[in-house]
Design a protein around this nucleic acid. Sequence first.
DNA 1: ATCTTGACTTGCC
DNA 2: CGGCAAGCCAAGA
Length: 126
Amino acid sequence: MSPFKQRVIQIVRAVPRGKIVSYGQVALYAGAPRAAREVGWVLHATEGSDLPWWRVINKAGVITIRGALFVDKEIQKKLLVAEGVEVSDSFKVDMKKYRFVATDKQLREFELPEEYIGTIIRQKGF
DNA sequence: ATCTTGACTTGCC
DNA sequence: CGGCAAGCCAAGA
């Protein structure tokens, strides 16, 4: 398993109940700012594990799950609603309200280079 | 090695 | 807002 995958898993696990992160955000925390699509790939590949994959959606706050065999938008919506996250009929979530932002301490636990953490902190919006 | 395919993002109308 | 093209990068074929 690649280090990237390991980090993605670790990061997603750090997302608390009722909170949401975007793929790009996870990619950023994982040290690969432009690897958002790979995050989706990793989640897909780890289907069946205890990973809270449903807390990862796209940046616009929309559930964009595609072509999954055993999971679909409805399932994900249900899982989120069960945690107290409001999901609209068009599968949209209020990111401003539910977005999870990693603390400095957590970022350090992700074992990223010190200067890279500075880069992340400098990033205001995603 | 080369080409296609995404559970994505960003920028430009 | 909404649609579209390009960018990105790992996996599979």
